[in-house]
């Protein structure tokens, strides 16, 4: 076969290509993720109704729980909105992550993931960009819920710094859990399935927890589960930081989140790498 040397200046000669250095790879993990984050956030600008409706739902949850269940649920100091709000923002941050499962499954279905995988970009970037965009949206929704909560009577009881720490913890929690959703989205590969599969494991964690009600009235076995699962632990810490109730150690919450993070980030990236079929 005749070998023809490319002389046209328009094509970059193959000899110029090098594997990136370690520093460069690390840097690209950040910059590529930000490019994808920006792309995902553009959806909210182009489709404002997406943001509106995905915001109405948690606010509606807040109002429904506060006024429908509020009277019936006995909490220690008798002020249910103060009990509810820290819990329900944890639940909101968690549900918010489900967008990652559906969004990634859609990208897979449309062949966008194939294109991204054929580009010399960081292997983590598509997933990180997805979860970061969802985290940005979570920040917005959580702050909005605190605002609405304030209107219907919620008050921080434990100082400004603790309140800020609580919000940071909620956002970190949402971010970590969105990696679980990302993994599910890459696994099931189909948006409708991702929608359903994304939520199945969420409900027991959210309802068998201290998010909406104190755990004391639950049957004993359920109570043991409810008090020791990560969602309750985080919700208790957030509640403690916001309104001063007794709670588990902040470090225990951070340990849980770190544990989930170091498992699900590599797992999701591994799934992304082999998502070709």
């Amino acid at each position: 076969m005749a070998q023809q040397v490319i002389t046209q200046s328009k094509v970059v000669p193959a000899a110029q290509y090098r594997d990136p250095s370690l520093m460069q790879s690390l840097w690209w993990n950040v910059t590529d993720a930000l490019i994808i984050t920006r792309r995902n956030l553009t959806y909210y600008v182009r489709l404002p109704q997406l943001l509106v409706f995905s915001t109405i739902q948690p606010v509606m949850f807040l109002l429904l729980f506060a006024y429908v269940f509020g009277g019936a649920i006995q909490t220690q100091n008798g002020n249910y909105i103060n009990f509810l709000l820290p819990g329900i923002i944890v639940q909101t941050a968690m549900f918010g992550g489900s967008v990652a499962a559906v969004g990634l499954a859609e990208d897979l279905k449309k062949g966008l993931i194939d294109r991204f995988r054929s580009l010399p970009m960081a292997r983590s970037a598509v997933l990180a960009g997805r979860t970061l965009a969802d985290t940005v949206r979570n920040i917005f929704v959580v702050l909005l819920m605190i605002g609405v909560g304030h209107i219907i009577g919620f008050r921080f009881q434990n100082g400004f710094l603790n309140a800020v720490a609580a919000v940071v913890l909620v956002i970190a929690f949402g971010h970590v859990f969105s990696w679980i959703f990302a993994f599910i989205g890459m696994m099931v590969k189909d948006p409708e399935t991702a929608q359903v599969a994304g939520f199945i494991w969420v409900f027991p964690l959210v309802f068998a927890s201290s998010i909406f009600v104190p755990t004391e009235t639950m049957p004993e076995l359920l109570q043991i589960f409810a008090e020791n699962q990560p969602v309750s632990i985080v919700a208790n810490v957030v509640r403690g930081l916001m309104i001063g109730t007794p709670h588990d150690s902040v470090w225990l919450a951070i340990a849980w989140l770190t544990g989930i993070y170091v498992i699900f980030v590599p797992l999701s990236v591994w799934q992304y790498r082999r998502s070709a079929n």
Binding site: R39, T42, R46, L47, G111, L112, D114, R115
Partner: peptide, 13 residues
């Protein structure tokens, strides 16, 4: 460069 069987472009952009 790769162009697959179905256009892989982002509809919302």
């Amino acid at each position: 460069g790769l162009a697959g069987q179905y256009p892989a472009v982002d509809e919302m952009l």
